[in-house]
Design a binder for these strands. Structure first.
Lengths: 259, 259
DNA sequence: GAGAACTGTTTGGGCCTCGCGAACAATTAA
DNA sequence: TTAATTGTTCGCGAGGCCCAAACAGTTCTC
């Protein structure tokens, strides 16, 4: 079997399915739309869009509400199912809540899919700051502490595949933007066991993350805590909090062996 | 415009899209599957299934994990988006947490879509019992307290459409199973302002629900609390708790006017 | 370790379907 | 009332989709 985890060129596609996927995407971007609007937007005839929407509505992927079409709540159902398929999800969620309570900050959980990071849970302690991330959100792996923890545990060829697919787009001027820089950073992460984000994403925001590994060495994901530079500094930032995060990751790993 | 909210017969469909929808459904039921298994299950050729899966993977609706295909976490993203489109979602969530804390029981939130009820949130108080429902779960409206609250606020012709589409399938021997019985019950719900489920779904489980209405009379959904008959009895079941649930629904309605 | 019996993948070709354009309703705007 | 939207339906031709079959890897069995 050719290891085509991320190659996208080969093999046949089904045009009709692609059109329906584009419709879903458009409905999401536009917060719902009508037949004409979609036809215009996607460059297809109204008739085509109409028959697609009818099929999608049959299957309850879209719903007709006061005259235009919207994304259906069926996605909530399937989304919850997808989360439940991540076998450490429940264990991690519980531990995250505890971690957020202990530190008073924001605690988050991310896993890798399609070469990007997906947030699966977010717990808020009493001093928790607002963060832009939300459950389901997808981010490039090279520009967050969570992502770097994940990358640090992946084999080199896998990392190269991911760079090939997504590149290293710059979020801010501090973002890692070359392969060398990235591999250097990952080496440090592997040595220290934790990854940092020191205002790389947002001015004033710091973040500490640790990977979660399966006993067989396979990677599960990563957890993190985030907070303002005013509270994330000195020994607390460099020793106390990293130990707490690693401890939490370790607890999850131990609990996971019992699944 | 012909008011075809629920008619399913007319209009053209796109077969290829239907096949992809069936694939998604099958992947969910089987917790992932391979090409051959899906081809067998859906009665299509392997080549067909393969090209569909490739297209769905391009769009990140499915993911290839150690050799077979699974539902992707992209659904989590779209599902969270769909929830956020329900404009009272955040307000209701907050109020539900308070309600669960106040009563110590399970508090839930449901909205109607496609003629069925969809759970959107579940808050657990300290004595909360285990319930089978989960976020995203879809239930027929006639057999739960939440569903009955919702139906009680819908116009008669809409209710008939729903019955036409889904029927009144019996869950247990206590389930409402005729149109007359249902309309009688709904009349009572409208008069009292709350709906009950007295061990109709599960032996030993009682439930109290109240609808949430938009100021313009449009329906938003319903909230409920559930608990064991040992705690849901006497005045608490017939007066105290119903008042609390109605109060919470009212708070949500008031907060919703500010959106 | 060789063969069988699975997998997933690729290819060619014929039937069918899908997507288009245009006409038709049904609202809304002017 | 007219004009300009919308969504819906329908006939038709070209193109795409689905199938069968061959191919290529992997795993099982003995």
């Amino acid at each position: 079997m050719s290891k085509r985890q991320f190659e996208t060129g080969s093999g046949r596609r089904v045009q009709a399915v692609q059109i329906s996927c584009d419709i879903i995407q458009a409905l999401r971007e536009k917060d719902g739309a009508g037949v004409s609007e979609l036809a215009e937007h996607l460059g297809r005839s109204k008739a085509t869009i109409h028959s697609h929407l009818t099929t999608l509505a049959d299957n309850e992927f879209v719903v007709q509400r006061d005259g235009n079409y919207e994304i259906s709540l069926r996605f909530v159902d399937i989304g919850e199912y997808a989360k439940s398929q991540v076998d450490i999800y429940e264990v991690t969620k519980t531990e995250l809540e505890r971690l957020a309570e202990e530190t008073g900050e924001v605690a988050q959980f991310m896993v890798e899919e399609h070469g990007r990071g997906v947030y699966l849970h977010k717990a808020r302690g009493e001093n928790a700051i607002q963060t832009a991330s939300y459950v389901g959100n997808r981010k490039y792996l090279h520009c967050t502490a969570l992502g770097k923890s994940i990358l640090s545990q992946l084999p080199e060829e896998r990392i190269d595949q991911i760079i090939d697919r997504h590149g290293l787009p710059e979020r801010t001027e501090n973002t890692i933007s070359t392969r060398e820089e990235l591999f250097d950073t990952l080496e440090t992460v592997r040595r220290e066991g934790v990854a940092y984000d020191d205002e790389e994403v947002l001015q004033g925001l710091r973040c500490i993350a640790a990977p979660i590994q399966h006993p067989n060495g396979e990677l599960y994901g990563a957890i993190s805590i985030s907070g303002p530079t005013s509270r994330f500094k000195g020994d607390r930032f460099h020793e106390e909090l990293p130990e707490i995060v690693q401890g939490a990751a370790n607890i999850i790993e131990v609990n996971a062996t019992q699944l």
